[in-house]
Nucleic acid binder design. Sequence first.
DNA 1: CGAATGATACCCT
DNA 2: GGGTATCATTCGG
Length: 216
Amino acid sequence: MSATSAEVRAPLKPLGRSFFDRPTETVARALLGVWVVRSTPDGLSAGPIVETEAYGGPDDLASHSRAGRTRRTTPMFGEVGHAYVYLVYGMHQCLNVVAYNGREAGAVLIRAIAPVLGVDDIRRRRGRPTDPTYRLCSGPAKLCQGLAVDRSFDGHDLTLGEGLWLAAPGAPVGLRVQSETQIASGARIGVDYAGEWAARPWRFWLAGNRSVSRQR
DNA sequence: CGAATGATACCCT
DNA sequence: GGGTATCATTCGG
């Protein structure tokens, strides 16, 4: 007997605002193992985060907030715990959660999850029928496509538990707990333009997890 | 390795 | 206001 969407909904309670009111590096680490939950008319699609990147305030030359508050970066200067979703390379979306911005307008990029719930829906939305499950959301844009997250979620409050939210592990869905796995860190990806900021080890992932976008 | 693809930021009139 | 270089990626060759 498998768990229905209704049965897993209650345990997947959204993280509260205070979780995100910490330095972005701290939040980025703490988010490993936390679930991204997406609720659509089809049901729930969800899985634990296995890879993140921390982006700081305007002084972080790799962060979008380096340009100050613009139309695009407005969510980064808003309340923590809201989503910042942007279009990159003209065709891909990336999901961030705003963190600690009372002091620096930062955000955490969610780079990969391990699909657990709604795998068939995720695979269909990805359009990759033969991909192994663990690789369906192994990248920031793949994750957004798989979970049907687009810019309509830009600014969305992730603490409400409506449509899209983040939930702490512990639910009876066979979760992998963060403490069971070693956390690795390294330079962020695709930010070579950021000078010495590019070398900061602000990318975090669960060591050895197959759903991480790139190993080592 | 390079194309796809379009919003954005930034510079210039 | 208008032109343009750039881009927190992915996929296929």
